[in-house]
Amino acid sequence: MTPLFELREVEKTFEIRRKGKKLGLRALDGVRLTITQGASIALVGESGSGKSTLLRVLLGLTPPTEGVALYQGRPIAQVRAENREFARNVAMVYQDARGSLNPRMTVEALITEPLRHFGICTAAQAPARVRALLARVGLAPEVAGRFPSEMSGGQVRRVAIARALASEPTVLVADEAVSGLDVSSQAQLLNLLRRLQAEMGLTLIFITHDLGVASYLCAEIAIMYLGRIVETGPTRAVLDAPAHPYARALRKAAPEFFAPLAEPLTGEIPSPIDLPPGCRFSGRCAYAQADCRLTDPALLRLNDHRAAACLHPLTQSFANV
């Protein structure tokens, strides 16, 4: 079966200026990723590791500088340019939900816009459609007449999701859609996304840096470090026994009730304009060996489900997966 999305050796280099000199900043470097229809995948990694850039590549908004990015076997940028179907199928919920909604439009107008743009229904049907979408995300019909400024953060995120669902997408892409919310609104929203996935078979691509959220919502996880996916696999298996030393450090740093505070990772994340030779994690890795400073490991299969970009994966813990 052709996967929904496939990224092969994707590289994205931004040209930046530092002290008058032109430099290349490799925001994505050797990214390999396959997403099948109906999957739910969490993208995790430090800020600046390339998560948002990767989303933009998947959405066809940023063309890769090298490598191929395919949607149903065809280049994403080409599919996107050819027809509106792609934009209709692949919907996005932005990191800053409030900022992504026009403050001068009511909720009704905000949700009607994509209905009209994609010709989903007639103008006469729109009001009923809007209310059905609001119900779907757990908002009362009265909300239709309000402006975003009259709603709480959790409600605004729900409106953004309702708006994204208006085009009847098959793929929902969300950038930090629940971070910064109260625990109760966060939990409500996560349950909503879970329900939508189950009921509509949505493919879900979800950026978060909360590993609990990743494990609650997504069957698969992709962990990024400095522009590369360094580990992928089933979320629970990866978090129970990470194979990549960075994935392990991330797992250990996650807060845990009454456990001693995690030993922090040593060293600093290198600058993406000045990557170290060999493995990009070698300067901070507790397992680094001499070859790690010479060879840059690609993301390679460990078994049928898992892959890691490490010359010396933590196979000991890996054996009992």
């Binding site: 109760s184 409500q188 349950n191 494990s215 797992r251």
Partner: peptide, 13 residues
């Protein structure tokens, strides 16, 4: 409402 790694079900009010 606390989500930990491995939380199966949440029943937020």
């Amino acid at each position: 409402c606390v989500i930990e790694i491995g939380t199966e079900d949440l029943t937020p009010p």
